[in-house]
Design a protein around this nucleic acid. Structure first.
Lengths: 264, 264
DNA sequence: CGCATCGGGTGCGACAAGCGCAACGCACGC
DNA sequence: GCGTGCGTTGCGCTTGTCGCACCCGATGCG
């Protein structure tokens, strides 16, 4: 508790409790004494800690081994958030297929606050860089995923997000809200979004919307690769296959295509 | 901190932290002051609490609204919880098989407080809606899972839960404790529970009990689908396959069928 | 068997963790 | 301008909680 303990808010026992959960998650199963050792506290402390966690069903006791493991309380807590995990499971095979087909990197992104967060990724074998973007947050206005999500927000939300300044990361970044707004219209009409070196030099991407049963856009699916392999002339074709893949995922989520939702 | 504070282990701030997470989960988004009010603590305390949670990514701040929502750390934990919970792990293949066989949605639910929480779900391909119920809480008296869990509670617990009013969600909801109690008896005798449009109009379901090694009912397995595909006349058949599946899971958990447990 | 060792749980006193207070800065609305 | 709402932070007092010691039960070993 003397090492990296200097960040903002800090409640000792809360911190410990969360560390405990992480340790248990890592280990799968942990006994009281062992947990105490890893947390560097007396086993009595660890005992009381897990008892508290157990009371809230955050951990549960294996009736055989008497050790503690994570409990369903966590699942309940994450509930809504877990919907995205479900999305990952459902979408995975289609992401893989799309990556095979395009040989580029495929990403699945959702809106989180004012950024897009990638919740899954599959890299085509041809990909140069294999860094995982999962968990990464990237700006809405400079990514294809972000634009697609923006394009499908309701007006109030979109206005709020576009009111903030749009930071420039490359020469091509669209920093003008009006110009971006116009492009969002095109994107809705066309069905896929693009970025051309707007986030990173030499990186292009296209993205298509994923809808759940009620038609709401909940995520975006993107294919991204180096500008020399994804030239402007290639984008419509890649856009089409991306849209097909996204639609396939939407269908799995229960979405049934109706006539243009714009009308209704 | 003066109400229901008498269980085993009890660390005030850990308890508070978990309550905070639950409140945020419920509300979707919560500001510091509001959280403080609901936790019945000074807003300064709430501020330090969420700061600690945020540091571990259990909550994150919406950059626009400045409010807090659940974070990715929790998703990670919940994912780990699902993977490590041996009930889910054990039951999964059987859920999938049951979904294939019935072509309807299969849910695995446990009792949590006064509600049933779904900890896993597999959807049959025929399913209309594919919204995930995982993490969702539904009332005990209006769901097949809930009735099955209620039916297998010990008398004291059951009485306590039935003492509370039974909220109506559809015209068919059973709101009379006496009537429900009678049905629970039938359910125990028959081995499966049903709901017919008692939670949602047009939604029927059947559920069967899952027992661990000592015979205790720890979860319920349900098959649910639209009323037109799950007519009253179909329920016994579906009930049978559901019971078979539930029994298969129980067996994997170490339960060995004995002569009627009612006798011993 | 008897003894040692390891696991988990609990009453108690001491001490610091963390609580509420109050004051501050900031953003709105009028 | 003022009033009201938000979230954050220093500070002193209190109370939550930590480690100690000890208990219980299971297991291992000469």
């Amino acid at each position: 508790m003397r090492d990296e303990r200097e960040r903002g808010g800090n409640l000792q026992s809360v911190n410990r409790a969360l560390r405990a959960l992480e340790l248990i998650a890592e280990a799968g199963e942990l006994g009281v004494s062992e947990l105490g050792r890893r947390l560097d506290v007396h086993k009595a402390t660890a005992s009381r800690l897990v008892a508290t966690l157990a009371e809230r069903a955050m951990v549960e006791r294996d009736p055989i081994t008497e050790k503690y493991r994570l409990g369903f309380g966590l699942i309940r807590l994450a509930g809504a958030a877990m919907a995205s995990m479900d999305l990952v499971r459902t979408a995975r095979p289609i992401l893989e297929d799309l990556a095979d087909r395009t040989l580029e990197t495929v990403n699945l992104g959702v809106l989180s606050g004012d950024a897009v967060v990638y919740i899954d990724q599959v890299t085509g074998t041809r990909s140069i860089v294999a860094v995982s973007w999962v968990g990464r947050r990237t700006p809405l206005h400079a990514t294809s995923n972000g634009k697609m999500l923006l394009a499908n927000l309701d007006d109030r939300e979109r206005d709020r997000l576009l009111a903030a300044p749009l930071p420039r990361t490359t020469a091509a970044t669209i920093t003008n809200a009006g110009k971006l707004r116009a492009q969002l219209g095109e994107i809705r009409a066309r069905g896929y979004a693009t970025t051309m070196e707007e986030l990173e030099e030499g990186l292009n991407a296209v993205a298509a919307p994923i809808r759940r049963a009620d038609g709401e856009v909940v995520a975006a699916l993107s294919v991204s690769g180096p500008a020399f392999r994804m030239r402007p002339v290639d984008l419509p074709r890649i856009g089409r296959v991306t849209m097909e893949a996204a639609t396939a995922i939407s269908r799995r989520l229960g979405y049934v295509e109706r006539r243009r939702p714009a009308a209704g």
